[in-house]
Write a protein that binds this DNA or RNA. Structure first.
Lengths: 344, 344
DNA sequence: CTGAAAGCGCTAACAC
DNA sequence: GTGTTAGCGCTTTCAG
């Protein structure tokens, strides 16, 4: 294990006392000058600031935080499921990370990123418990509703990207999965599709709601909702292909697939193509998320877009409110159907 | 601007003094017990630890760091080019972030992520200058060799993902771009391709070396190296399509494209297909990076893979060495040609 | 084995 | 206006 301390105090890090000595004033004066306090005379202030700048002195934020009992860092936790091994690799999570980085930077906050095993979500609170961050943004609710509730009950400021659930103590920000699912379903129906398979694990709240949305669309069109078209594909790599195989093996006829994620949709399309089944001619396919590569795919993928920049901003806004002791109602962001060639 | 301090001391955060009082010992004893010091009697130690655990007490790392003058956080900086607007969105950068997260977690370090405008790279050192991190991993060298040298000269522990350059004061870890380019070139030549276009901005060190590798392959095969096949495509979205258009407009005949990144390759393929030019029949295309979606693309993309997990580990290992005052030689990681349908 | 006291680098009353 | 002093939450000599 490597050490984590600097080598030698060969060239000790400059500190406020040094500046004070060099400027011939007290550290208080330096502190005030650097903070731009109006208590300090114009002259001393600029002199001190010049000196500090020319010496490339920087305030030690750790010490400052300790003294001021403040903190401008937010923890971003990406759970990974040790079973499915999905972690920081799904493009969607990564986009989210990007949006969060943008939103936090905008607000002058830093981002401390960590990964935790989804089965031990309490660990997600560690950066908060140890005082490193003022709160946590958790990307992905998975099926750990209860653990999240416990965290919230412990008063850990936490905002979760995911679906709104009954009896939820924590704050969520998420896309409107129900509406998204319905949009996708309605679109497929409008294209004349009659037998729409759904790929995804409906035990995951977000996926469950997307499926529910599809069912709503079917009902509104007076069409039957039959569980034979529900394939419990998971996010494992290859999940989409496996689901296609399972569907084909079942012998259930289908002319469309609504996949729980773009990645799964792409895998499904590849699997279909391998079997000579044309997309969208024979089977129309809709994905979810509109990851950057969906438009590059062949055929370009029809999908439901979640508004990522807004998502980042909303997550951050809610978390800052929470950390400030305010209430933060859950947010449901509008989704948008992006129609491309995989369905038309 | 939201406040960044907790609401009220309604339920003040537990601290060591509280545990000490409740356990009827001094804070020194608590500190030692929690640190597992052998100086403390077995009995007191377990008693204190139990108490701390049951009360969910956690040591305040900020204070601990201040006192111990240590730090277990590494800064990861992702520069973004305000011109091309490429930032935390290229799948490759994001993969790198994932690998780094893994490698750092492995070593018990936290990751502080920030984005900085590539034209003001000094800002990259801010987390270090302010004492928040023990060093910086910079993802992407761009064309800012000089600024990086300055940082290194200032003794900022910094490791850069990128190419090795002459007169380089900083430590780099990167793929072997020269070998990678040569692999790609040799493969295309072996496939009988005679007129190989290169897409990319060779002013970027990594891209330049990939191009150089291609040229080496051509020379070894006794083929001409003609600048007419060098298209200075940049990383802007659509750069690949634009490059195809430029190439076609130039009237220069070509039967293969080696693109500087997978994204660019995919854009190029789409543009070619739109014009009815079959890939790989009419034009073979090779990308670079082997981002996760390359295998899903249609046709699956032949590309040069950089070993991401190793990359993360190597970056972290070098940075920790540097931060510890040791020398950290630059590292060049082996690359691997992944042959898929876009070239055969 | 345990406690008292000093101090990490900084800020904020409270003096002058 | 500026300096003195106390202390943020923790660790670590140094005594006992």
């Amino acid at each position: 294990m490597p050490k984590s301390t600097p080598p030698e105090a060969e060239s000790r890090r400059l500190q406020m006392a040094d500046i004070a000595r060099l400027a011939g004033v007290s550290t208080s004066t330096v502190s005030r000058a650097l903070a731009g306090s109006k208590l300090i005379s114009e002259e001393t202030r600029t002199r001190v600031m010049e000196l500090a700048r020319s010496l490339k002195y920087n305030i030690n934020i750790g010490a400052q935080n300790l003294r001021m009992k403040q903190n401008r860092t937010v923890g971003v936790v990406v759970p990974y499921d040790p079973a499915t091994r999905q972690h920081l690799s799904d493009p969607f999570f990564l986009s989210m990370l990007g949006s969060l980085a943008d939103a936090l930077t905008e607000q002058g906050f830093d981002m401390l990123v960590s990964r935790v095993d989804a089965s031990e979500l309490d660990a997600a609170a560690a950066p908060f418990d140890t005082g490193r961050v003022i709160g946590i943004v958790l990307i992905g609710q998975w099926r750990h509703h209860d653990q999240l509730n416990q965290l919230a009950a412990r008063h850990v400021p936490i905002v979760v990207w995911g679906a709104q659930l009954p009896q939820q103590l924590y704050c969520t920000v998420g896309g409107d999965n129900l509406a998204g699912g319905e949009l996708a379903g309605a679109h497929l129906i409008a294209q004349g599709r009659q037998r729409i398979a759904f790929f995804g694990d409906i035990n995951l709240p977000e996926i469950g709601q997307r499926h529910e949305g599809l069912c709503n669309a079917l009902r509104k069109a007076g069409m039957a909702v039959d569980p034979q078209w529900l394939i419990p594909a998971s996010f494992v790599p290859d999940g989409g292909r496996l689901a296609v195989e399972q569907l084909l093996a079942s012998g259930v006829p289908f002319d469309a697939i609504f996949a729980g994620s773009d990645l799964m949709a792409m895998e499904a399309i590849n699997a279909l193509r391998q079997r000579g089944m044309d997309v969208p001619g024979r089977v129309a396919v809709v994905g979810y998320d509109d990851i950057p590569l969906s438009s590059y795919f062949h055929p370009p993928l029809t999908t439901v877009r979640q508004p990522m920049p807004e998502a980042g901003r909303a997550l951050v806004a809610s978390l800052l409110a929470l950390a400030d002791g305010q209430a933060a109602p859950s947010v449901r962001l509008p989704t948008q159907l992006i129609i491309r060639a995989s369905t038309v």
